[in-house]
């Protein structure tokens, strides 16, 4: 499983303030803590409130680079913000994200081709988020086809079948799981699959429990990556154990320790 740490996001109050005042310490602290807890990528999002997102993203990448060389996920709806981030972060980053909307594909796929980096594709099109698995897979196909047209290898496309909060769309959760499995059949090599996990528990009382239970279920359906909170030890333990039970790693009595070595 590829762990993309979600903690550096302007939506979090402390991070939002740090971005606004260009205070490096909270950013560096969040980067180091996530890497130490097993993040393979760090997601960077300047948040919706930033009024100069390009400059904010540049500062954020430079600041994180002072703390770690861990690859980054440049997270923004705006192509110019993503380009600004990629220019400094380099081609081992991920673009987060495009959707299946024609306009966004036309703007972002060329970036993925130019930088040779993976791109996350949310299964959202002009009609919004599909209700069921086939609808999601159909949008995923559009994204994979667009990638191929632009010369982006299919395994550099990470399909995110968009999980919505359990508190408002309970009928979507099983459909997302089915979509994870179906997306694997779209091409050879298959696209990867990824989830913005924490969204599933928005507005619930037992967030950590909902997150880790859903992550385990998604892993059983073949999920490759998740944007998640690596500081949640229970979540990480559940992920490590699920991977073991899927025979993706080799068991030993101290398997949690082995993963973290």
């Amino acid at each position: 499983m590829i762990v993309i740490g979600e903690r550096i996001n302007g939506m979090f109050k402390r991070i939002g303030e740090a971005i606004a005042t260009r205070d490096e310490a909270p950013i560096i602290e969040a980067a180091q803590a996530q890497v130490e807890k097993g993040a393979n990528y760090l997601d960077l999002n300047v948040g919706p409130a930033s009024d100069e997102p390009v400059a904010a993203m540049q500062w954020l990448v430079e600041t994180v680079r002072k703390a770690t060389d861990t690859p980054l996920s440049i997270d923004s709806p705006k192509p110019d913000v993503i380009r600004a981030g990629l220019d400094i972060a380099g081609s081992n980053s991920i673009i987060n994200s495009t959707t299946g909307e024609a306009q966004r594909l036309a703007a972002l796929m060329p970036l993925a081709a130019e930088y040779g980096c993976p791109i996350i594709g949310l299964t959202i099109d002009e009609n919004g988020v599909p209700r069921d698995a086939p609808g999601r897979t159909e949008v995923a196909l559009k994204i994979v086809a667009s990638a191929m047209e632009h010369g982006v290898p299919p395994d550099n496309v990470w399909i995110d079948p968009v999980i919505l909060p359990i508190s408002c769309t309970q009928n979507h959760q099983p459909e997302v799981l089915k979509a994870i499995a179906e997306c694997k059949l779209l091409s050879d090599p298959s696209p990867k699959t990824v989830l913005g996990l924490s969204n599933v528990s928005q507005g619930t009382r037992y967030r950590s429990l909902v997150n880790r239970t859903y992550l385990v279920m998604a892993i059983a359906y073949g999920l490759d990556a998740a944007i998640m909170d690596p500081l949640d030890d229970d979540l990480m333990d559940a992920m490590i154990t699920a991977e073991l039970l899927m025979n993706k790693t080799v068991y030993c009595d101290d398997f949690l320790k082995a993963y973290r070595t």
Partner: peptide, 14 residues
């Protein structure tokens, strides 16, 4: 036993 092999490696590195 691959599981024990991994475990001994962990013990020794610890």
């Amino acid at each position: 036993d691959i599981n024990i092999q991994k475990q001994v490696n962990i013990l020794v590195t610890e």
